[in-house]
């Protein structure tokens, strides 16, 4: 008897399976070759940790990693604070003048290709550098904070919109001041959203190549811009080792993010 399934569509399962295999295959190959003893990246010369060791001893790699973390953590925290405030200002309200403008403005960095933002910041910051003489990390942090805001805003806003307003009314009814209500009811409930936003922002900052490439001054290589420079010069298994370590970090953060944002109910 021919069984008819409502949800079946011919070929879809095959395409989906192929997609998942294709998505993971290159990553698996990359990780495997990080443990290759041979110098060539095309032959297998036995298992070895030497490329991890060589990356660990490469001061450029360490410096770039530290700089990435430094920029990422500062930008993520700043972006999350700004995004939390903005989310509180743009949710759970009747439409008011300027609300649509705020949505558009906050999401604007998503609508502009990175290359354009990169060019714009290069021009703007080069003027500011001449004017102030300051050429520190501030520029990179400002740029990263700006493009991290829409990402941090996303889960916080979603969390706020799903939140039960009556809880806050109940707190107010029980004599809590607006600040106490925020501190004791809103914030604890919002916390998973904020955490998710923070992690997203951190990953997004860590991921960036293009804007950093245009904004950085000499000696301000982050890990991705350092890696891009290396790949342009020719590939060595050391890049695989660095990538593998980076990948591990991403997976750890994503896993954490996944559980934080899925645990919403």
């Amino acid at each position: 008897m021919a069984k008819f399934s409502i949800k079946h569509q011919p070929g879809f399962t095959a395409i989906a399976t192929t997609c998942f295999v294709v998505l993971y295959m290159p990553i698996v190959v990359l990780v495997v070759y990080a443990f290759n003893a041979a110098t060539s990246t095309s032959e297998w010369g036995g298992f070895s940790l030497k490329w991890f060791q060589s990356a660990w001893q490469n001061t450029q790699v360490i410096d770039a990693t530290l700089l990435s973390f430094q920029i990422g953590s500062v930008a993520a925290v700043l972006a999350t604070i700004a995004a939390t405030m903005a989310a509180l200002a743009t949710t759970r309200t009747a439409p008011y003048r300027g609300l649509t403008f705020k949505y558009a403005a906050i999401n604007q960095p998503l609508m502009v290709p990175e290359i354009v933002t990169g060019v714009a910041l290069l021009i703007f910051f080069s003027r500011v550098k001449i004017f102030t003489g300051y050429s520190g990390l501030g520029y990179l942090i400002a740029a990263h904070t700006a493009f991290c805001i829409p990402f941090a805003y996303l889960p916080i806003r979603a969390r706020l919109e799903n939140m039960d307003l009556t809880l806050e009314r109940a707190a107010a009814d029980l004599y809590a001041t607006p600040w106490q209500t925020f501190r004791r009811v809103t914030l604890p409930l919002l916390w998973p959203g904020i955490l998710a936003g923070l992690m997203l922002a951190f990953v997004i900052s860590l991921d960036d190549v293009v804007i950093t490439e245009f904004v950085k001054s000499g000696g301000q290589d982050t890990l991705p811009t350092y890696m891009l420079g290396q790949i342009r010069r020719g590939i060595t298994p050391e890049i695989n080792a660095i990538s593998t370590a980076f990948l591990l970090l991403s997976v750890a953060i994503v896993t954490l993010f996944f559980f934080v944002s899925r645990k919403q109910d």
């Binding site: 700004a82 405030m85 903005a86 200002a89 705020k102 403005a105 910041l121 400002a142 700006a146 493009f147």
Partner: peptide
Amino acid sequence: LSAPALLIILVAATGPL
């Protein structure tokens, strides 16, 4: 409340365009 986010985006993303 939304001023900091808007300001950062204005200075380091939209304005320079």
